[in-house]
Amino acid sequence: MKTYAYAATFEPTDREGGFTAFFRDVPEAITEGDDMADTRAMAADALGVALLTYLEIGKPLPEPTAEGVMITPDPEVAAKIALIETFQHAGISRSELARRIGKDEKEARRLLDPNVSTKLPLLVSALAAMGKRLVIGLEAA
């Protein structure tokens, strides 16, 4: 099961209570926040943006190797990442994806656009059309 979880390192900033977060495996994802909770939220956002950008420019997602505090993108972003990555490996056209989900090609294009948000039912449907099942998990914050 793929989770898109990567280890973050947190370091205090010069500002009182602030932290910087960075990912050894995803060096483009770096951010800071006013406190640890804010920094963790910002780290999830930065990670999601970096991973979506990798997919948009055709760069493969890195394998997680680092150890530390595991961070995942927000659930909607992780589902979008899963969809785009699955499509890129499926070897089908946008037209074929559109046919499989009963939508027109314009809808499939929006579905695969990392900058366009997509409702969860359509993401689930598109993943299923490519032989994947979205699994939701729960862990302590």
Rank of each mutant, 00 (worst) to 15 (best):
Met1Lys: 14
Lys2Met: 13
Tyr4Lys: 10
Tyr4Gly: 02
Ala5Asn: 08
Tyr6Ile: 01
Tyr6Gln: 05
Ala7Tyr: 03
Ala8Cys: 10
Ala8Ser: 11
Thr9Asp: 11
Glu11Ile: 11
Asp14Gly: 14
Phe19Ile: 05
Thr20Ser: 07
Ala21Asp: 06
Phe22Gly: 03
Phe23Asp: 02
Phe23Ser: 04
Phe23Gln: 05
Arg24Gly: 08
Arg24Thr: 08
Val26Trp: 04
Pro27Trp: 03
Pro27Gly: 02
Ala29Ser: 04
Ile30Tyr: 00
Ile30Leu: 02
Thr31Gly: 02
Glu32Pro: 00
Asp34Arg: 11
Asp34Val: 14
Asp34Asn: 11
Asp34Phe: 08
Asp35Trp: 07
Asp35Cys: 09
Asp35Ser: 05
Met36Thr: 12
Arg40Glu: 14
Ala41Pro: 05
Ala41Phe: 10
Ala41Tyr: 10
Met42Thr: 01
Ala44Cys: 11
Asp45Tyr: 13
Ala46His: 01
Ala46Trp: 01
Ala46Gln: 04
Val49Lys: 03
Leu51Phe: 04
Leu51His: 00
Leu52Trp: 01
Tyr54Arg: 07
Glu56Thr: 12
Ile57Phe: 12
Lys59Ser: 06
Lys59Gly: 00
Leu61Ala: 03
Glu63Gly: 09
Pro64Ile: 06
Ala66Ser: 15
Glu67Arg: 15
Gly68Arg: 09
Gly68Pro: 08
Gly68Asp: 09
Gly68Glu: 10
Val69Ile: 13
Met70Phe: 12
Ile71Lys: 00
Thr72Met: 15
Pro73His: 07
Pro75His: 04
Pro75Cys: 05
Pro75Gln: 04
Glu76His: 03
Glu76Ile: 02
Glu76Trp: 02
Glu76Phe: 00
Val77Phe: 00
Ala78Met: 01
Lys80Arg: 06
Lys80His: 01
Ala82Lys: 08
Glu85Leu: 07
Phe87Met: 07
Phe87Asp: 03
Gln88His: 14
Gln88Glu: 14
Ala90Met: 08
Ser93Leu: 13
Ser93Arg: 12
Arg94Ser: 07
Glu96Cys: 04
Arg99Ala: 06
Lys103Leu: 06
Asp104Glu: 13
Glu107Met: 13
Glu107Gly: 00
Glu107Arg: 14
Arg109Gly: 09
Leu112Phe: 10
Val116Asn: 07
Ser117Pro: 05
Leu120Thr: 11
Leu120Tyr: 12
Leu123Met: 07
Leu123Thr: 01
Val124Phe: 01
Ser125Glu: 15
Ser125Thr: 15
Leu127Lys: 11
Leu127Cys: 06
Ala128Lys: 15
Ala128Glu: 15
Met130Phe: 06
Arg133Leu: 13
Leu134Met: 13
Leu138Thr: 14
Glu139Lys: 15
Ala140Thr: 14
Ala140Asn: 10
Ala140Trp: 13
Ala141Asp: 13
Ala141Met: 12
